[in-house]
């Protein structure tokens, strides 16, 4: 039922819904914190050892353990950890010797930028392809799209990355190579958002923008191809399901054009399941693709998390996990809101 802002009851209802909404987010986030924290403490990695090294004496070791607060009961550690996180303090990274929050503010936008361009490509091409395949089921067009989608499922990311670099960078020179930007342009624009494309637009520096885009386009297109494969397949199957429904026949009986039958009558009801699929793909891309980030020397969160894990850098691992978890919560909640807008049957 839509909320009526003109009545007193309507406004009350709005605030009740909003409070419930904020509470669920807070509780989910607390649960996420608890799980990451306790997993971090259960894994057989000694954070103290990671700091002092294996040649430290027992006294040095014990002193560091107390300094890190690890001698206290787990539950107290958790409470103070939650307190720190709420204030934005994720601790210091052992491997980079910087605050984890600062590190994340640097690496997450790099992944966010690539994932966003990737999902735009994936949705922009995948949805029309899926719809077209379903509308022409069994035709050569359908077969072609299905083969392409199958390729997206089965080709390994690192191979596609390497071949893409060899072809478009080394041979043809259409795009720039690994990294976010040429060294020459590094640090030219102020990192306001951390998203190079946005920052260079804000600074009005089109040269940096063009260079950053030419670095970004290949890895983003490869990520886009993978999400395209998934999105196109799911769209096709949702659409086939709809096109078999009686109300599609009704629309045809009315003499509605085929274009309208497909894009209005059949497409409108699949928007809700499609949002779930797109949301999950986007969240998956935001986790950072370690393969792509490694091949393209992309300083993103996937890379950062992998390095942190290999160095037993628990603060960094927990921080990165929290960010990824928060992204999932955010995307899920956004999908929930969109469901209500798009489906009149949900209340």
């Amino acid at each position: 039922m839509p909320i009526d802002f003109r009545s007193r009851d309507g406004i009350l209802r709005f605030f009740r819904v909003l409070t419930g909404f904020v509470l669920t987010i807070a509780l989910t986030f607390l649960g996420l914190l608890a799980i990451t924290f306790f997993i971090g403490r259960v894994v057989p990695i000694d954070p103290v050892l990671a700091v002092v090294g294996d040649r430290a004496t027992q006294e040095q070791y014990d002193a560091m353990k107390i300094a890190m607060g690890l001698d206290r009961p787990l539950i107290l550690q958790f409470v103070s950890y939650v307190g720190d996180v709420v204030q934005g303090d994720l601790g210091r990274s052992v491997s980079t010797n910087r605050l984890v929050a600062e590190d994340l503010a640097r690496v997450f936008p790099a992944t966010l930028e690539m994932a966003t361009i990737g999902i735009i490509i994936g949705v922009g091409l995948g949805v029309p392809m899926g719809v077209t395949a379903a509308a022409h089921q069994g035709s050569w067009l359908d077969q072609g799209i299905r083969v392409l989608a199958l390729l997206g499922y089965s080709v390994p990311a690192f191979w596609l990355g390497l071949v893409g670099l060899a072809l478009f960078y080394a041979s043809l020179g259409w795009v720039s190579g690994p990294g976010r930007v040429d060294i020459f342009y590094d640090g030219v624009v102020d990192p306001v958002t951390g998203l190079l494309l946005v920052d260079s637009i804000l600074a009005g520096d089109w040269e940096v923008f063009r260079n950053a885009l030419s670095h970004l386009v290949l890895p983003a297109a490869i990520l886009g191809f993978f999400s395209l494969a998934y999105i196109a397949r799911m769209t096709r199957s949702f659409m086939l399901d709809q096109l078999g429904q009686e109300y599609i026949t009704t629309a045809r009986v009315k003499g509605v054009s085929e274009w309208r039958v497909i894009w209005v009558h059949a497409f409108a009801p699949i928007r809700v399941p499609l949002i779930t699929v797109i949301g999950l793909s986007y969240a998956g891309l935001l986790e950072g693709s370690v393969m792509i980030e490694t091949v393209f020397s992309w300083p993103g969160i996937g890379n950062y998390l992998t390095v942190a894990l290999l160095n037993a850098d628990m603060n960094a691992v927990l921080g990165a996990t929290l960010i990824i978890g928060a992204v999932f919560i955010g995307i899920n909640k956004t999908s929930d809101v969109l469901y209500r807008v798009l489906d009149p049957r949900s209340t």
Binding site: Q245, E246, Y247, T249, T250, V253, G255, H265, P269, D343
Partner: peptide
């Protein structure tokens, strides 16, 4: 629609839900 039309069996399935 304009010249010949058809009433379907079950309005639960033959009307577009959205």
């Amino acid at each position: 629609g304009a010249r010949m039309s058809m009433i379907m069996q079950d309005p639960k399935f033959s009307l577009n839900p959205v």
